[in-house]
Design a protein around this nucleic acid. Structure first.
Lengths: 213, 213
DNA sequence: TCAAAAGTGTTAACCGTACACCCATGC
DNA sequence: GCATGGGTGTACGGTTAACACTTTTGA
């Protein structure tokens, strides 16, 4: 085993990811069950150590690929966590990201690190390792803010979607119902979407399908 | 010299600070002239290495004290910089902060690290080391956003101030003039300030002095 | 008396919010 | 024919933005 030696103590640096999806009008987050101490049996955010040749953004993207088999998800850093004792083993500085994937693409690749990964409803989180509950709370707040400023909602939707679908995603993230007419007016005013001309059939009354503009 | 050895490479971690003040209606930032390679003679942000027993917030506060002799300034992290080659010597991850101090308190303590520190107008920045120009640009944007949401402007003002003074600070940070009547109405509506009853005398027509509510 | 900064209101446009009914379809 | 979700407009209140003149003082 090689050794890396420095004149001063250096912390380990990781990127941890709050990976969200919306399924059945419910905001869910990907967690991994820990098989080792500390916090054996608790759930933790996916993430891992920064490598020598990558940025934190690249690290987060790589971990998402390795631990959940997902590439190309929307990824955004939102805070850094640095309390000296947040990991009882040794010092770890964590750059926290949130990531988004649509329900259609959220099937987890089995094998490798992903075997103990599961989606958990944000309304019923299990026992969490380290300070991951704090991180998740801040992630949700960051996501809510971002969604009202920038067109990130599409990362949580299939490529074509109805206005009701997009509304359900906002409601799931914000955790509160929204007025249908006002929501439609405001989302159309933003010019983030356009009509496809196709209708979604097979349920009740067909609904117009939209796509990202 | 002690040696700290790890099984994997670890980056150095620093906190760097974009330390702003407003003087003569001009937004200025504290920079330190580098006496060593790399970037000898260029200017750099104050900052330094994270110690074993402190958070990044504490590190930023300590560096501000050591390098500029200022304590209790408003401090806020806004981004992390992690490009592998952003420091040509070895890998450094930097948590970037912005800090604010009022013109009245911005005299630099001489001695120690501060000897080569100077305030520079944001409208005429010198040659900067590393990726510090990027960091400064992002800091200004973060500061502008924060000032319109939270009462941080007081960190850039003396304890008592006129409405014109507070307006000049906003104009300096945002880099654009503001309408006097609208500005006064909106700042009074926020209820961040109250009248002192005292007038500022000695110039032209006396102005009401306000203080933080 | 003049130069300089302090102080003061009104109007119009825009935006957010509240709110209820008819329509098209599948069963 | 009925249950289900799709689709639509208006009115009110609050906020923002534009805009010009009088007052007070020091020199």
């Amino acid at each position: 085993m090689p050794q890396f030696c420095y004149d001063y103590a250096r912390p380990a640096v990781t990127a941890d990811i709050c990976f969200f999806t919306v399924v059945e009008d419910d905001l869910r987050i990907l967690l991994i069950r820990r098989g080792e101490e500390p916090f054996k049996g608790s759930w933790a955010l996916p993430g891992g150590f920064l490598r020598e040749d990558e940025t934190l953004d690249e690290c987060a993207a790589r971990e998402l690929e390795e631990e959940a088999g997902i590439s190309g998800a929307y990824l955004q850093a939102f805070a850094t966590f640095s309390k000296p004792d947040r990991d009882p083993r040794y010092r770890v500085i964590t750059a926290a990201y949130f990531a988004l994937v649509s329900a259609a693409n959220h099937v987890l690749k089995s094998g490798s690190d992903a075997d103990d990964a599961e989606w958990h409803s944000m309304s019923r989180l299990p026992r969490l390792a380290f300070d991951h509950r704090d991180i998740i709370e801040q992630a949700r707040a960051a996501l809510t803010g971002k969604m009202n400023l920038e067109p990130v909602v599409f990362a949580l939707l299939p490529s074509r979607f109805t206005l009701t679908q997009i509304q359900k995603v906002y409601e799931a993230v914000e955790g509160q119902p929204l007025d249908k007419r006002n929501f439609r007016r405001s989302v159309l005013a933003k010019e983030w979407i356009r009509e496809t001309g196709e209708l979604e059939r097979g349920h009740r009354r067909p609904a117009m399908l939209y796509e990202r503009a």
